[in-house]
């Protein structure tokens, strides 16, 4: 997968936070992981991708972060349901933006949202999964991109 596609995900996530408030969002140095499970935070949105590239993109955020985001957006209730809705919304926006940019060869499914850790998540045999830390208001979230070039 080309860096431009990963960058598109990061940029569009950055945009989402930029529009949330005037505090800047910080992108940490990306690194590689082989086990997604250990990097999942409280709420995780999952987007699957087909087309020339196949794989999965995760946006995972701590409960502290999602609660704070809800506050910023003026949502009073911070029940579970709202938190999950929010993560879903982040994923929807991000995937929508990326789809608009890459169109035909980069097909993105409607995101699903899950809570906590999932033990079923694939563990790669080598470090080939990107993790990009996204820090907003000193609160942590991770963008995890596990995409393999489909041979075509």
């Amino acid at each position: 997968m080309d860096n431009t596609e990963i960058e598109a995900f990061v940029t569009s996530l950055q945009d989402f936070f930029d529009k949330l408030d005037d505090k800047s969002v910080n992108i940490g140095t990306p690194f590689l992981i082989d086990d997604i499970n250990s990097y999942l935070l409280d709420y995780t949105g999952v987007i699957s991708i087909t087309g020339n590239h196949k794989g999965t993109v995760f946006f995972t955020a701590s409960k502290l972060m999602t609660s704070r985001m809800l506050q910023t957006m003026g949502v009073v209730s911070t029940v579970e349901e709202k938190q999950m809705d929010l993560v879903g919304e982040v994923c929807n926006t991000v995937s929508g933006n990326v789809r608009r940019e890459f169109g035909e060869n980069f097909l993105i499914s409607t995101p699903i949202v899950m809570q906590g850790h999932a033990d079923t998540m694939k563990v790669s045999n080598i470090k080939d999964i990107y993790l990009i830390p996204v820090v907003w208001n000193s609160l942590k979230s991770n963008l995890i991109i596990n995409i393999k070039e489909s041979k075509s």
Binding site: N26, I27, T29, P30, L32, K127, I132, P133
Partner: peptide, 21 residues
């Protein structure tokens, strides 16, 4: 510099991991 700028380098790192593998 933003972390995003490191993506190309990290992609090369990924290739290195898989070659070493």
């Amino acid at each position: 510099l933003s972390g995003k700028a490191l993506l190309p380098a990290v992609t090369a790192l990924k290739d290195a991991f898989s070659q070493l593998d």
